[in-house]
Simulated assay, not measured.
Amino acid sequence: MPASTETEHIPLINKNLISVTVISAAYLLLSYFLIGYKPEQLVLVILFNTLYYLSKDTRRLILGFSIFIIYWIIFDYMKAFPNYRYHAVDISGIYFFEKGLFGIDYNGSVLTPNEFFKLRANSAFDVLSGIFYLTWVPVPLLFAVYLFFKKRLYFFYFSLTFLLVNLLGFVIYYVHPAAPPWYVQNYGFQFNAFTPGNTAGLARFDSFFGLSIFKSIYAKSSNVFAAMPSLHSSYPVIVLFYGLRSKLRYTNILFGVIMLGIWFAAVYSSHHYIVDVLAGILCAICSIGLFQLLLKYRWMNSFINHLMKITSA
């Protein structure tokens, strides 16, 4: 390579080094003041910097997946702004609404589906529910990796829709804080702002295998009063939608099974009411529709083209 070309790259490298370093430091500093230092914050920064500088291919990958990093950071920062500070938490209202719509007669009493499943729990459903619930992170991410390398345009369609459904869900969390079913089972209808995260029915999965997978996950919950809508139920809808658009054929059958499994597990494990799941499905449909509408605007297509460019350079 000519010396002049090498010299031209030096200012760009220095500029990128400064930018990434400043952003990394700013993230760690802001995180410290908002929610305190956590080891995973440093892991995220190290991972981002390593992939950014390791090679052109890893730089393209981490820049593309920055959309998911933005989601994670926003979700994490919700700890600093609990939604119950802004609106009263719906505890009894959603419980009786669920019972009125989907109540089950059992031994002379009317139970919510969560209460019924808790009484009729068995090891087979405990294991299946745990397995399905463990897929809500790796399946969307693995699907995103596939799209990134095979269908780059659809990758950005999928990731931006994913971000959009989360932003919509987060807004609803603050407008209408809602307690999950396990809260009523453990604490009744009395509000307690300092309630820790709870594994609920998923504790039976941990117990069956002698593990603490879900215990460690829910110990870091950003907000226990964010049950409506169930975003766990939203994600597989988006995956299946873009799987169908990508014409993945038999893989879409797997996506469909996972989607139904997550919906069932959300209710069976007492993490969500059926109305939470339905709200999550509706949230996904609205986000898909809204994103399709945004694609009609030139600025959105220009933005996506810019993303395509920086992940191809």
Rank of each mutant, 00 (worst) to 15 (best):
F33Y: 15
G36E: 02
P39C: 07
P39E: 14
E40T: 10
L42I: 10
L44H: 01
L44A: 12
I46C: 09
I46G: 01
L47R: 06
L47G: 09
F48I: 15
N49T: 01
T50F: 03
L51W: 08
L51E: 08
Y52G: 12
Y52D: 08
L54R: 07
L54K: 13
S55C: 15
K56M: 13
D57V: 03
D57M: 14
D57W: 15
T58M: 13
R59G: 03
R59N: 08
R60S: 08
L61N: 01
L61K: 00
G64V: 07
F65Y: 01
F65G: 00
S66I: 02
S66F: 11
I69A: 09
I70E: 00
I70W: 04
Y71D: 00
W72A: 03
I73P: 04
I73V: 15
I73A: 01
I73T: 06
F75K: 15
F75W: 10
F75D: 15
F75G: 06
D76Y: 13
D76K: 15
Y77A: 11
Y77H: 14
K79W: 09
A80G: 07
A80Q: 15
A80R: 06
F81N: 06
F81D: 08
F81V: 12
N83F: 05
N83H: 14
Y84M: 10
Y84P: 04
H87K: 07
H87S: 09
H87Y: 11
A88T: 05
A88F: 14
A88H: 13
V89M: 06
I91D: 07
I91N: 09
G93T: 11
I94E: 03
I94Q: 13
Y95L: 12
Y95E: 15
F96A: 07
F97Q: 05
E98S: 05
E98N: 02
K99N: 13
K99E: 15
K99S: 06
G100I: 10
G100V: 02
G100Y: 02
L101Y: 10
L101P: 12
F102I: 06
F102T: 01
G103T: 01
I104T: 12
Y106N: 12
N107M: 03
S109V: 11
S109C: 13
L111N: 03
L111Y: 12
L111A: 06
L111Q: 02
T112M: 08
T112A: 05
T112Y: 14
T112N: 11
P113G: 04
P113S: 12
P113F: 11
